[in-house]
């Protein structure tokens, strides 16, 4: 058991050091959510005057929840790029040969992904507060919001890891991020679910991410709704993504 954590911590340390030394890898996942936050909170705030818009915590808080969860997912996906790069350069192969516990490898990447997202989340939160974000929820509510972010970050990472271990090339990057992008934007991004019309309403209602973002908005507003359902959905996603990543790793191992 001990060696599994040793592998995880050593790998996470290596990933985080590589990250901090390379601004070109580190900055894009930080900049895009920031850009979205500024563009949505600054440019779209009048949407709260649309008849039926029933979120009362201000448009910045409304949009912050989406951007925070988006940054969590993409933080995980970008960490997945790193896994693909490691396979391309042969580092992952060495790791598979030398690490006694496969689980430790995924755990290490996951830990690094969380560290990376933590940095992004801190910056986003500071910028959100500076932009006048109102927080109606209690400490526990906010803890719940960030906990959803943590789970979603891991889901993003494990999804990307599953793709990375199957293709073992950075060329597969679009395949890692495009589906995540589609899932994120086929949800109530700019207005609450009931204000969506037509096909997008039908799709968003079935989209698991919708449960997370709607529950997150309830938490930040201080009117938690469907929180248990959201955590249930998040946990289910985590289980599915773990299986996807573990089978991918096994396949990479067989491929040698």
């Amino acid at each position: 058991m001990k060696s599994r954590f040793d592998v995880a911590i050593a790998l996470a340390y290596r990933q985080t050091t590589v990250l901090l030394k390379n601004p070109s890898i580190f900055l894009p996942p930080m900049l895009f959510p920031l850009m979205n936050l500024l563009a949505f909170a600054g440019g779209l705030s009048r949407l709260r005057h649309v008849p039926g818009f029933d979120f009362h915590g201000g448009y910045t808080a409304f949009t912050f929840v989406f951007v925070l969860l988006q940054s969590a997912a993409f933080g995980g996906v970008f960490a997945g790029f790193g896994i693909a790069r490691d396979f391309e350069r042969g580092f992952a192969k060495r790791l598979l040969v030398s690490a006694p516990h496969r689980g430790g490898i995924l755990m290490g990447y996951a830990l690094a992904s969380l560290v990376r997202w933590a940095m992004i989340a801190i910056v986003l939160t500071i910028v959100g507060l500076l932009a006048g974000m109102q927080i109606g929820g209690s400490g526990i509510d906010i803890f719940g919001l960030y906990a959803l972010g943590v789970i979603f970050n891991l889901v993003g990472l494990l999804w990307a890891a599953g793709v990375a271990t199957r293709f073992r090339s950075v060329q597969a990057a679009p395949l890692m991020q495009t589906p995540v992008f589609i899932v994120l934007f086929l949800s109530p991004v700019y207005v609450p679910l009931h204000l969506l019309q037509g096909w997008i309403h039908a799709v968003a209602r079935l989209n698991p991410f919708t449960f997370l973002v709607e529950a997150g908005r309830g938490l930040i507003e201080g009117r938690p709704t469907q929180v248990a359902t959201a955590f249930g959905v998040a946990a289910a996603l985590l289980v599915v993504a773990s299986v996807w990543a573990r089978t991918g790793l096994a396949r990479a191992e067989r491929a040698g």
Partner: peptide
Amino acid sequence: IPPLTFPLMLMAVNSNGLRAATHLP
């Protein structure tokens, strides 16, 4: 291919997701 498809995807998603904005006075 991404420069051809990505803007179309965003167009499809945003034109629906932001349709509520047309109700603004």
